[in-house]
Amino acid sequence: MIYQNVVSAVVRALAAETINSAGGCSVEPRVQAGKLKGEISGKDAALLADSIVHRLLHAQLSPRHWNALVAKYSTHKGRKVDSIGRLVAIVTTPAPKRFTQQAVLVWAVPQQTKGIQRKVPQFKAPEPRENEREGQWDWRNKAAAAAAERANKHARAVAEVKPGEMIVLAESNYDMTNWDSQGLTERTYQRWNRAIKGALEAMVNEALVEAQHMLEAIGVLFGEAA
C-alpha cells in the first residue's frame, strides 16, 4: 500500500479503527486468515496496511502528537472525545478551563453548514408560583427549574451525536460568548481562541512531520516509493 502523502496515510489509518469497530472485531485476524488461503487482495489488503500504519503511529508518536492527530482527523467518536479531553489538559493558555474546553472542542469539530447543523430545543421552566406565605412554593419552583435544566442538558447531548458516530455540535457551541461567564471583551476571547488554535495546529504539524519520517522509513509514501 502506497499513500499519496502523510495526511492521506493518517486519515486512512485512523479511519481503519472506525471500520474495525463497526465490523465488531479487528480486521487483522480476518485478513490474515484470508492470506493463508491466498485470498488477500484489494480492500482487505489496503485495510490491513491502514491498520498496520495505525499501530505504528500509535506506538511511536508521543501522546501529545497522537492525540492531536486523533482529535483533528479521527471519525471514531470515543477516541476523538478522549483525545480532545487530553489536549485540554496540556494546552498552555491564560483562558479559564471552560473556555479552553470549548475552544479545543470546536477546533476538533469544525462548524458544519447550515443544512447539517442541528438546532437544539430550549425548554423554559413555567413561571414561578408566588408565595402566599414564606417558602410556600419554593420547592416546587426549584424542582421546575431543575427539570427544565435537565431537559436542556439532554437536548444538547442529543444534538452532539450524529448517526455513524460522528459528532455534530449545536450552533451555540460556536458562540464564544457562551464559553465564559466573566463578560470580558470580544477582543480578549478572540486572542485566547487564536492562541489555543495556534498551539493545537502546531502540535498537528509536528505530529505530521514525525509521522512522515516514520512512513518514509518503511517506504509507504508515494515520493519515497518512486
Rank of each mutant, 00 (worst) to 15 (best):
L69C: 03
A148W: 14
N20W: 08
P126M: 08
A211M: 12
M176A: 10
R98A: 08
E17K: 14
W66D: 03
K35D: 06
V7R: 12
P96G: 01
R64F: 01
G78K: 13
A202H: 15
S8G: 12
R55Y: 03
K97H: 03
Q122M: 08
A68L: 06
R156W: 09
A202K: 13
A59C: 08
P121T: 08
D44F: 07
S51F: 01
P128H: 09
K114Y: 04
A199D: 15
V81D: 08
N5V: 00
P126L: 02
A143H: 02
A145L: 13
A143W: 03
V109C: 06
R156V: 06
A217H: 08
L69N: 00
K72A: 12
Y3M: 02
A226M: 08
E210W: 05
S172K: 14
T188K: 09
A157T: 03
Q32M: 12
Q212I: 06
W139L: 05
E127T: 11
L47D: 04
G198W: 15
E28K: 14
V168P: 01
L36M: 15
S62Q: 08
G183Q: 04
A95M: 02
D82P: 00
A22D: 14
W192F: 09
L200R: 12
R79V: 01
A46D: 13
Q136Y: 02
A16W: 07
V106E: 10
H76N: 12
E127W: 10
A202Q: 13
K43G: 03
E17T: 08
G135W: 02
M1A: 13
A89N: 12
S181N: 11
L87F: 12
T92P: 02
G115S: 05
S74E: 00
T93E: 04
L221D: 06
L208W: 11
I218F: 01
G198R: 15
R187I: 03
V7E: 13
T75M: 06
Q4I: 10
A125W: 10
E127I: 07
L61T: 05
E210A: 15
A108D: 03
E186I: 00
M1L: 06
N152G: 13
A157S: 08
T185Q: 13
F99G: 00
K119T: 11
K97E: 14
M214L: 15
Q136C: 07
S62F: 03
N193I: 13
G42Q: 04
A49D: 15
C25G: 12
A226R: 02
Q136P: 07
E127F: 08
V53T: 05
G183C: 09
A170H: 10
V106W: 07
Q212E: 15
S172V: 08
E216L: 09
L208M: 13
A71P: 05
L57C: 03
K80F: 04
V209H: 09
H213E: 11
A207I: 05
I40W: 01
G219P: 06
T113V: 12
L87W: 10
Q182H: 04
A143F: 10
H213N: 05
W192K: 03
